[in-house]
Nucleic acid binder design. Structure first.
Lengths: 192, 192
DNA sequence: GAAGTCATGTAAAATGTTACATGATTCA
DNA sequence: TGAATCATGTAACATTTTACATGACTTC
């Protein structure tokens, strides 16, 4: 499941420009999928070449022209097929946890900062999800799955935040305690 | 924070071969960082060229030879510096949630299967973490951060599993209900 | 005899990120 | 005047995944 396929998915909810699709990803998928212009625009170009979507340029009045894309029947079929073929993975790539794993090699101050900014980001995400849930247009194309993914994100991030808050003090003191060992290790590298 | 840097990190716990490092990643990092041989071996070769690690070949008795790598002082310093520079991100890339978002386009059976296999995988992961926590060698180099990352993984995956279990029945019935709408949509694509 | 583990690596392909280039309009 | 939003795109680079190639030993 790559950006190309996700673009097809976005267009099942109606015609949109590359810019719109980016916004859609940001609002809806931000906590489990990211995509920048650098991958969206080339994806749309390629999908157009493959006739899975069609483009028409709409003149913007007092605004740049937009290229509005429309899902073709072939594109819809390809998307449905891909959805059914996909073995759905769920991957986490966390430099945050890597850092915490190696926290004994870091100054306690930095560990504190890292934990706090992680908490902040989780809370921002939670806020964003709640906002997005609140402002759903009653006649909009919000699929039933949206509730599930929003709930999932909220559950997971709430649990993660709570865990960090519970551990925070412990971690800081433990990190400080192992600080002396760290200095030993730096002066006398293991295995030398 | 890429595989190259992670290899340096792995070697702070002692000398190891590429094969060992892969195992280390699997045991320790599997729930928040993945790396295959295809990225580990080239990374080690490059680090050797940069003199951040040194290699020596150890003849295996009745087994293939191993190339055992050792972190040089320069390598240790580079790793510590990188740890401090890194802005720690925490990214989720979930085809599972994408699928759930589009569950209204899928047969209810598949949605059920997807949820169940996701539950299974979470439970496998939880099991693996618990095993890894249990069999810690008393004199081993387990860093204090290990407890944190294991606890984090357990917390998050337990919450996620519970959420899925709580939603499961609801989702299935909702998906079935919206099934008729799906067929309408397929026969009369929006915007045609 | 088949499958699995130990062990190292390469090459091509897929994928995504970052930086750049352009330019009008709106709001403070 | 400066920043933000709207809007599209390219090119270079970074990074990872996948498939291939090799081969001995062990366990069922």
């Amino acid at each position: 499941m790559n950006v190309k396929e996700l673009c097809l998915g976005a267009l099942t909810f109606g015609d949109a420009s590359g810019y719109d699709i980016k916004k859609f990803f940001e609002n809806t998928f931000s906590h489990f999928f990211v995509a920048g212009y650098g991958s969206i625009y080339p994806a749309l170009a390629e999908l157009t070449r493959e006739h899975l979507i069609s483009a028409k340029t709409v003149a913007g009045e007092g605004r740049p022209d937009r290229k509005v894309y429309h899902l073709t029947p072939a594109g819809r079929e390809v998307f449905l097929a891909r959805l059914q073929e996909t073995t759905p993975q769920h991957k986490v790539k966390s430099e945050f946890l890597v850092l915490m794993y190696f926290s004994h090699l870091l100054p306690a101050r930095q560990v504190e900062t890292v934990l706090d900014s992680r908490l902040q980001e989780f809370e921002q995400h939670l806020h964003r999800i709640e906002q997005h849930e609140a402002c759903q247009h009653p006649e909009s194309a919000d699929p039933p799955g949206m509730k599930f993914v929003c709930g999932f994100g909220k559950t997971v991030m709430t649990a993660a935040s709570q865990y960090i808050r519970d551990c925070r003090k412990n971690i800081i003191t433990e990190t400080k305690r192992s600080s002396s060992q760290k200095h030993d290790a730096r002066r006398k590298p293991a295995g030398s």
